[in-house]
Amino acid sequence: MADFTDPREYEEKFDPRLYLETYFHLGSGSLADDFLRFVLENFNKTFKSGAVKGCTLIDVGTAPSIYQLLSACENFDDITVTWHTKRELQELQKWLNGEPDAFDWSSIVKHVCELEGNRMSPKEKEEKLRGKIKQVLMCDVSKTNPLAPHEGPNADCLLTTVCLEAACRSYESYGTALKNLSNLLKPKGHLLMAGDLGANYYEVGPNKVFSLPVNEKFLKEVISGSGYELVQLVSFGKPEDADFGSSDYEGFYFVHAQKI
Rank of each mutant, 00 (worst) to 15 (best):
R8K: 09
E9L: 00
E11P: 03
K13I: 14
R17N: 13
R17L: 11
R17H: 03
L18G: 10
L20Y: 03
E21G: 08
T22N: 14
L26N: 01
G27D: 09
L31E: 12
D33Y: 15
D34A: 07
F38C: 05
N44Q: 12
T46H: 09
A51I: 03
K53N: 12
L57G: 02
L57M: 09
P64L: 03
I66H: 00
Q68L: 04
E74R: 02
F76G: 05
F76I: 13
H84L: 06
K86F: 09
Q90K: 06
G98A: 13
A102S: 11
F103A: 01
F103Q: 03
D104P: 11
S106G: 06
K110D: 13
K110F: 09
P122M: 09
K123E: 15
K125Q: 12
L129S: 02
R130L: 12
K132R: 05
V136M: 09
M138F: 08
D140Y: 09
S142V: 14
P149Q: 05
D156W: 14
C157V: 11
C157K: 05
A166H: 00
A166D: 14
A167K: 02
A167N: 02
S170C: 11
S170P: 14
Y171N: 05
Y174F: 11
G175V: 13
T176V: 15
H190Y: 11
L192A: 05
L192S: 04
M193D: 04
L197H: 04
Y201R: 04
Y201L: 09
E203P: 07
K208H: 07
K217A: 13
F218V: 13
K220D: 13
L230F: 02
L230K: 00
L233Y: 07
V234N: 12
G237F: 13
G237D: 14
P239M: 12
D243W: 15
D243C: 07
F244M: 07
F244V: 15
S246I: 15
Y249K: 08
E250C: 13
G251A: 03
F252T: 08
Q258K: 10
I260W: 11
I260Q: 12
I260T: 13
